[in-house]
Write a protein that binds this DNA or RNA. Sequence first.
DNA 1: GATGAAACAGCCGAGCT
DNA 2: AGCTCGGCTGTTTCATC
Lengths: 143, 143
Amino acid sequence: MDEIDHKLLRALQRNSRCPIKSMSQEVSLSSPAVSARIERLERQGIIRGYTLDVDPLQLGHHILAYINLDMTPNEKPKFIPFIASVPNVIECNCVTGAYSMLIKVSYPSTQELDSFIGQLQQFGKTETQIVFSSPVPPRGIAL
Amino acid sequence: MDEIDHKLLRALQRNSRCPIKSMSQEVSLSSPAVSARIERLERQGIIRGYTLDVDPLQLGHHILAYINLDMTPNEKPKFIPFIASVPNVIECNCVTGAYSMLIKVSYPSTQELDSFIGQLQQFGKTETQIVFSSPVPPRGIAL
DNA sequence: GATGAAACAGCCGAGCT
DNA sequence: AGCTCGGCTGTTTCATC
């Protein structure tokens, strides 16, 4: 992990479809050298995957929300498979504080969101925060 | 936006470096046809970009946290440029509920996180939730 | 949207430092 | 050992139907 690897990660973070050749001239190396570095980063698990940034609104997902869930620890074995199976769940984190879980979801409308929260309440108390706007839209970690 | 577009989006969401040719045989279309569809999705803004999924831990970012911030509306003009300029901020959302902002950050250690929260407190009261684990790791929206 | 040709990028070898 | 340079294969793109 030297400065060149960092540059390659930054380039791929900006545009993961970026051709190897254009990266190679950015870092003043040959294409095979860059190719080998990227394969190494993939093997090491530093690069976990190449993904897509889509506009949820244009796909009919108008509601983005965070749901806090307070749950007793022995509910967890039932909860985890359930939450992982819901496609609208974007993230689910165990967190410190008054609530045990913080869940990020996206739904077409508040109606579907409400129905999901109804299902969640069998596991514990919930508190929902609906997103109005995102001054800093989701982005990658600092490299 | 027909079923074929959805398949292409799903393929790119799994692996955005996926070659056009392999997608074209998945949807039983020619390469130029797939290429044209993807260009259209980019122009329409449905595809916002191609990005990278990296492992924060392997890059030394051990602490992931959500910070709730309670702020009076007239602080906002000062707050937005500040928050956007902090590279460790992964997301910043205006939300409903007791707190006005929900901020996601990643830091090497709790020390740097604490220092950031110190800066935040000039804008209002904060409440921090540190992430222990992610039963559902961040993923794209359902397509 | 499909086909065929041309340009281009990515991959694998050999030779070099 | 790792990098660079070569040729070869496969992919993307453009013009045409």
